[in-house]
Design a protein around this nucleic acid. Structure first.
Lengths: 176, 176
DNA sequence: CAAATTCGTATTGAGCCGATACTAATGCGC
DNA sequence: GCGCATTAGTATCGGCTCAATACGAATTTG
């Protein structure tokens, strides 16, 4: 994975951590597109992440804009150049390819086991727990296409419930 | 994982990569305890790894000695201090704990799927393929406790067949 | 409104990392 | 035996990540 990331990044002369940041920003929902959330996700300090974002901004790969409500926080978004770079280099593609010889069923089973292990690991670490809305205990389905976050009280579109959130709360009573 | 490794290392003021190197050296068999093998394993250049080893040597965590046959190669071994540090910090312990709520059967299935994905990934990368002797196609069982590496022609003890090898060749005909 | 807290930034220093150049040992062809 | 290419490892240099610290600005609390 280290080699893979370094190779993918070197073609654009980006460091591994820059690619990881871009990947994250491409998946972060409205509650999670801030420098602090990215720092929690990457396990780095906010100062370090601030430097990373400075670089990505200079390269025109992300856009930064103020939050309307709390004018301290900065919202982050992939620029079109950033999305294009991500689509071209596809750092995760190698992993998808690596599973081509494995049956979908085994992949599903392995994925769910790993997801559980990750949740436990994150809890042990008392670190931020990230997850997608669709498996979050706060997520409510209002109608065919409208969801709602019970924690924040906002309505969410279907696509947004497939994004990554920093205030994720795992559903309990999964397995013994 | 990044946080975990950084935290475990910071207690000894070691960087993540240093711990990874120690973990590797604790698992590498007689064909794989060289700087070059470590570089392949970590996906770093030999020059970079040379620096890492210099540091680990200064700290007394590893021992370096010449190979008898080829006097260019350097053999690496954990010192007792290195083994102790590894046993205390146990960078992998967090992962084991994270799987405590998952049934052994699911863990086995997930592990085998991941192992397959890793092999495919390594082949795609044309990188070094590492694996343990027990699942290597070169490994022959001579008797109850004696094995043999068909590639190198050496006899191997039972414990050694559970170590990590750089000249690993995956068994074919596993699944479609 | 003052104090404490939180989000983000700027700066500094330690140290990883790759690139390059180098030495030394081995193997190949003669 | 004697060049030539190859391989294992080291030394040096510059770019850059990263944590620590300090700071400014906005928000919250009492």
């Amino acid at each position: 994975m280290r080699s893979e990331l370094r190779k993918a990044g070197s073609e654009e002369s980006l460091q591994p951590v820059h690619l990881q940041a871009l990947v994250y920003l491409g998946k972060a929902n409205r509650y999670s597109n801030t420098p602090q959330a990215l720092a929690d996700y990457l396990g780095l300090t906010k100062g370090t992440v601030s430097q990373t974002l400075l670089l990505l901004d200079r390269r025109g790969l992300i856009e930064r804009f103020e939050d309307d409500v709390d004018r301290r926080v900065v919202r982050l978004r992939l620029s079109s150049a950033g999305e294009q770079l991500l689509a071209e280099s596809q750092p995760m593609l190698a992993w998808q390819n690596a599973t081509r010889n494995i049956s979908p069923n085994r992949i599903r089973n392995a994925t769910s086991a790993l997801r559980e292990a990750l949740a436990t690991l994150q809890e042990d670490n008392e670190g931020a727990v990230f997850g997608v809305c669709s498996s979050c205990s706060w997520c409510q389905k209002l109608s065919q296409r409208i969801y709602r976050c019970g924690k924040m009280g906002d309505r969410l579109s279907g696509p947004e419930t497939r994004k990554l959130c920093r205030i994720y709360a795992a559903k309990v009573a999964e397995s013994a």
